[in-house]
Simulated scan of single mutants.
Amino acid sequence: MTTHPDAPRILVIQHEDGTGPGLVGAETDAAGLVPHLVHPWRGEALPATLTGYAGLLVLGGAPGAGDDETAPWLPAVRALVREAVGTGVPLLGICLGGQLTALALGGSVRVRPRGPEIGAVPLRRLPAADGDPVFGSVPDGAPAAQWHWDEIAELPPGAVPLLTGADCVHQAFRVGPRAWGVQFHPEVLGAAVADWARSDGPAAARAGADPAAAVASVRAAEPELREVWPRTARAWAEVVRSYARR
């Protein structure tokens, strides 16, 4: 596919191997957005600012949102999050990206006292989801793929909760007009979760989770996952395109 020279560019931050943009990236590519994918754990430098970018996509990963010693690029990511919200650049933070968004803006993140949440989990719409430009079409009870040991304990001041779950309260939220964070993984299907189960499953099992059941639940939910979450990714891509046209 030939890229138009004026196509909007988005900065995509990946925190480790095996946690790429997946379904979300496929939809942003199809929408004509040009990704600049940075792998800071490999030593690749993050841009100092978002100048020249029409969107910021922050992906998931194993580090904690405040693990600056083990993941020394995280302060720079949080600074870019604050810049995005302060300037109105569209932002989507996924799992760790959502936690970084919350922490950067004055919320808090904690290790889950109940152990990891893994597998396909049904989400509930909250009233503010009505009319939201990205999550407004998510049906009540839609399944979402989960694999996280930490969770957002408190949303930032002024954040609007959009989706919740029975075991993890803050599943999706909006800050300002064009910034969103999610705790779940809209970018993955069963194959990715199976990979995570091979690497992280033994620790999850020791913590009381059932990795095999988690993988099976995500595989069973794939028809709904393919219907719901690419649609939200397309909606976010349209927010980016509208911002770029302003």
Rank of each mutant, 00 (worst) to 15 (best):
P116V: 08
P35L: 11
A221Y: 01
V218C: 06
E187K: 06
R78I: 07
G106V: 00
A79I: 07
V81G: 04
A79D: 15
D68G: 03
W147H: 12
I94M: 08
R246S: 14
F173Q: 11
L92N: 12
A102W: 11
P21A: 14
A54D: 02
W196T: 06
E69C: 00
A71C: 07
A213K: 02
G66L: 10
E154M: 01
F135V: 00
R112I: 00
S217T: 06
Q14V: 15
I118F: 07
G20S: 13
A221T: 04
V175E: 12
H4C: 06
V89T: 15
G52I: 03
A220L: 05
P35T: 13
G93V: 02
P127I: 10
G20M: 04
D150T: 11
C95F: 00
L162R: 05
C95L: 01
A84C: 03
W196R: 12
G106W: 01
A166P: 14
D200K: 10
A142H: 03
V111N: 09
L57Y: 09
P5S: 07
V228R: 08
E238C: 09
A79G: 14
L92E: 12
L103R: 13
I118K: 03
E44G: 05
L37W: 08
C168T: 15
G52M: 02
I118L: 14
L126Q: 14
I13A: 10
S199G: 14
V77E: 13
P127D: 04
P133D: 08
A205P: 07
M1Y: 09
P223D: 09
T28M: 11
V218E: 01
W147R: 09
P72K: 06
A209N: 00
A142M: 02
G64Q: 09
H39M: 15
T51C: 04
T164V: 00
S108N: 03
P177E: 14
W229D: 01
R198Y: 00
P127Q: 01
L103V: 01
A84R: 01
A203E: 13
G158E: 05
T2V: 14
W73M: 01
A48Y: 02
V58D: 02
G25R: 12
P90Q: 02
I152Q: 03
V160D: 09
A144T: 04
W147Y: 11
V138M: 03
G165A: 15
L162W: 08
E69T: 08
G131C: 10
A62T: 14
M1Q: 13
A209Y: 01
A207L: 05
D17L: 12
G165D: 09
P161I: 01
V134A: 08
T19Q: 15
R125Q: 09
L126F: 04
A26Y: 06
V215Y: 07
L103G: 06
T49Y: 02
T2R: 15
A191T: 15
P75Q: 04
G136F: 01
T49C: 05
A31G: 10
